[in-house]
């Protein structure tokens, strides 16, 4: 069921900026507080806002539950591969990418990549949880 006109239009106007903001927190996770988990939460919030305001039928034209499941599994596998790449240099979680200079976006080795993967995984995971919780009540 769609909510009223005002709610739909305002969520449409706000959500692209929220997605951009969550990607900012993801990429700058090694330089500022926040990081993958918080960024994933904001990503999920921006999608759930659209889903609440427009209903499931409208949103399924763009993206649906199976794609979220696929993203989550793919990101989990990606994290495992990235982390176990350290085994070639010694231990797991070994930071084998070039560190760069401190304070710039391209620094910190694989930690920004790790944050991006974790953020996408957490966002997709929250979406799967939301679908599982509302499956029995959303009949539209």
């Amino acid at each position: 069921m769609m909510m009223s006109n005002v709610v739909r239009t305002t969520t449409k106007m706000v959500s692209p900026f929220l997605v951009t903001y969550s990607i900012y927190i993801m990429i700058y996770g090694h330089l500022s507080p926040g990081g993958g988990f918080q960024a994933g939460v904001i990503l999920a919030v921006s999608v759930i806002l659209l889903l609440t305001a427009h209903g499931h039928v409208v949103m399924e034209r763009k993206i649906d539950e199976s794609q979220f499941k696929m993203i989550e599994v793919a990101m989990g596998v990606g994290i495992l591969l990235l982390v176990s790449g350290g085994l070639l240099f010694g231990t797991m979680f070994y930071n084998y990418v070039d560190r760069g200079t401190f304070g710039l976006p391209f620094s910190g080795g694989f930690i920004p990549i790790f944050n991006i993967l974790v953020g996408l995984k957490v966002g997709a995971g929250f979406m799967v949880v939301y679908y599982a919780l509302t499956r029995w009540s959303e009949d539209d």
């Binding site: 005002v6 709610v7 305002t10």
Partner: peptide, 16 residues
């Protein structure tokens, strides 16, 4: 600006 944009929408939704 976000407060000024979000708050009236939430009030409208709760009233409806």
């Amino acid at each position: 600006f976000l407060i000024a944009m979000i708050n009236p929408m939430v009030a409208h939704a709760i009233a409806r």
